[in-house]
Nucleic acid binder design. Structure first.
Length: 603
RNA sequence: GCCUUUGUAGCUCAGCGGUAGAGCAUUCCCUUGGUAAGGGAAAGGUCACGGGUUCAAGUCCCGUCAAAGGCUCCA
């Protein structure tokens, strides 16, 4: 059975129709408004307006009420074909519609002159009640197909959006709505939004004491608190060891570099907008390191390389700084200083596909271990019409082909996106959505023929000739900040035991059990576990509540009975009670769960 | 960067022209309690910051900073 396409669904027609009805109500409220476009989107719809002033809460309330009234009027949606002339006459006071009409009549071209839509000789109008819009449909047959209680436009603040998504053009007011078939579905959706807020890494970061962002330090510059640092450090140690096991070599490079380094790499002219201002020292200028690649390249270049040395795999958790626009900053997922789990592989052309596959498998292993199954893999190729790339066409061809061969060979479901390449080469990205459905790039593996060229990298081949290596840039996490942020949301703060900042909380029943509690805790700590004792003044019941709120995997309640039997009474954060266990049994259980990196709290 | 909204105690929020409030957290006292908040008291705020209007400003206006939701951007 094939799934129905969204565009063919009733929900799509309902939302599309709601957008028109919202435009009608808005024009009644703001008769001078200029209307732009209003499509259905995931979970709802929007419409863009140019307004004399921004709408108030009351305006929106009024519009929403008015929309319900229009819906209750049982108006038919009627379609009519019109000539371009008639369309222009109809919308003579609507400049955005006139622009759309022109594009439809002439066919749409992108900025490079490529035709992206065929010219049309006839246009279509859809009318409901007293409102007509230029639209290709489809819509519901009548407003009576819409449940007036199953939509809302006041759940979200109004947003600014550029006409045609171009920041050089007029900024319009976008009003979002959500619309469903039934009131229950609407309530479900609003409930889901609430739930998402609860899992938001910024909210959990505060509640679980993971990180803070203080304006006195700087926006986009998170401070990791002990529990957050522990989480991050655990991820780092894991990947570092995995990389050592796979032939990577550690390197360490400084946080700033001479501007000439980035001029040589080609990064500087391309991305000067998003770099911190250079630091002038004597006669030189230094840049806060915006990427690690050039540094690793210089290490490669510091010795004469033989084909016998290759592949060379240099790995570093390298912190980089990028001056992102302030409006783009977001918790841990978009920051100005972040640490890339970076590695650069220098390989022979023959080794390229094999090494690329190994790197891609490493990313997959990371995702699988953490149960991150809901991601998209994107092959980012260059935009054939853009000149923002360096290197020869031939190099790009080879690199793109290598990636496509590799994903094919490992059967990785993927999609291809032109224009998503790095400036130096094509790449494979792993994209994951956060709880608010925003998509973030995490892991990445990239092929690069260009930087070896720019830095004149070489190795001596078997026949004694000097050859040029190919580079692979890769980062399974992408950035420690973003990856941790997404993980917080993925687990809703309830991390698997091997990652939990605190793996077990020992809870004495009364004060006189604190000594035994400490004894248990130090024994576990000596075995390498992260354990705390709640020796506060609250009662046991409250301590259990607090440990649950922190999503600590194991609560070890100890009282007289436990002291007597040398046991711990184990309670899981899932509220399951494992009862009293001999201490050694518990530590053995914990060991096997942590070592297996299990996602489950019981073996 | 742009649009809109928000900014009161460590946290969550109430107050919205007339001498700063609650709950949780913190500190102290009582309570020693076997699996989701025992009782009491104290302390804690130049109401983000800077201007202005007013006899009087968390409360109205302007600016700055920060955050949120979008847009643009994302090596």
């Amino acid at each position: 059975m094939s799934e129905q396409r969204y565009e063919d669904s009733k929900l799509y027609r309902i939302r599309h129709s709601l957008a028109h009805i919202m435009a009608q109500a808005m024009l009644e409220r703001f008769p001078n408004a200029k209307i732009a476009i209003g499509p259905p989107i995931e979970d709802g719809f929007y419409y863009d307006f140019e307004l004399p002033q921004s709408p108030t809460e009351e305006d929106l309330k009024w519009v929403e009420t008015r929309m319900k009234k229009i819906i209750s009027g049982n108006h038919a949606f009627t379609m009519r074909e019109v000539s371009p002339e008639e369309a222009r006459e109809m919308f003579k006071d609507q400049p955005y519609k006139l622009e759309l009409i022109d594009d439809l009549v002439n066919g749409r071209e992108d900025e490079n002159g490529s035709q992206i839509a065929e010219p049309a000789s006839q246009l279509t109008f859809y009318t409901q009640d007293k409102f007509t819009d230029l639209c290709r449909g489809p819509h519901v047959a009548s407003t009576k197909e819409i449940n007036p209680k199953a939509f809302s436009i006041t759940f979200k603040p109004v947003a600014g959006a550029y006409w045609r998504s171009d920041e050089n053009r007029q900024q319009l007011t976008r009003i979002y709505g959500t619309g469903w078939e039934t009131e229950d579905q609407l309530n479900d959706y609003l409930h889901r939004l609430e739930e998402a807020k609860r899992r938001d890494h910024r909210v959990l970061g505060e509640k679980l004491g993971l990180f803070v962002i203080d304006p006195l330090v700087g926006k986009g510059l998170p401070l990791w608190k002990p529990k957050g640092a522990m989480l991050r450090d655990t991820l780092e140690r894991w990947l570092r060891q995995t990389q050592l096991d796979n032939g990577y070599l550690p390197v360490v490079t400084p946080h700033i570099g001479n501007l000439n380094l980035y001029k040589t790499s080609g990064h500087y002219p391309y991305y000067s907008d998003s770099q911190y201002t250079p630091i002038q020292v004597d006669d030189d200028e230094f840049l806060l390191k915006p990427m690690n690649c050039p540094h690793h390249i210089m290490i490669y270049k510091s010795e004469m390389r033989s084909y016998r040395d290759l592949p060379v795999r240099y790995a570093e958790f390298g912190t980089v700084y990028r001056y992102e626009q302030s409006g783009e900053l977001n918790g841990l997922t978009r920051v100005r200083g972040f640490t890339v789990d970076d590695a650069h592989l220098f390989v022979t052309p023959e080794q390229l596909v094999g090494e690329f596959i190994k790197a891609a498998r490493l990313v997959q292993m990371v995702f699988n271990t953490l149960g991150l199954t809901d991601f998209r893999a994107r092959v980012g190729l260059r935009d054939p019409n853009s000149d923002k790339y360096v290197g020869s066409d031939e190099a790009w061809e080879k690199a793109s082909e290598a990636i496509l061969n590799a994903v094919e060979e490992i059967n990785l479901p993927h999609f291809v996106a032109e224009g998503e390449a790095a400036f130096y080469g094509p790449k494979l990205d792993f994209l994951v959505r956060d709880v608010l459905k925003r998509e973030w790039q995490l892991g990445t593996v990239q092929v690069d023929y260009n930087l070896p060229e720019r830095f004149n990298l070489e190795y001596v081949a078997e026949d004694g000739t000097r050859q040029r290596p190919v580079m692979i840039h890769r980062a399974p996490f992408g950035s420690m900040e973003r990856f941790t942020g997404i993980l917080i949301e993925h687990f809703g703060g309830a991390f698997p035991a091997w990652l939990s900042p605190v793996q077990a909380m020992v809870i004495p029943v009364t004060d006189r059990h604190i000594e035994y509690a400490n004894e248990i805790a130090s024994k576990l700590r000596r075995q390498g576990f992260r354990v705390e004792v709640d020796d506060g003044k609250q009662r046991m019941g409250n301590k259990i509540r607090l440990a649950r709120e922190q999503h600590i995997p194991y609560m070890l309640v100890v009282g007289d009975k436990d002291i007597e039997g040398r046991t711990v009474s184990v309670r899981l954060r899932t509220d399951e009670d494992l009862g009293a266990m001999p201490f050694d049994d518990f530590s053995a259980m914990l060991r096997s769960i942590v070592e297996s990196q299990s996602l489950d709290l019981k073996v």
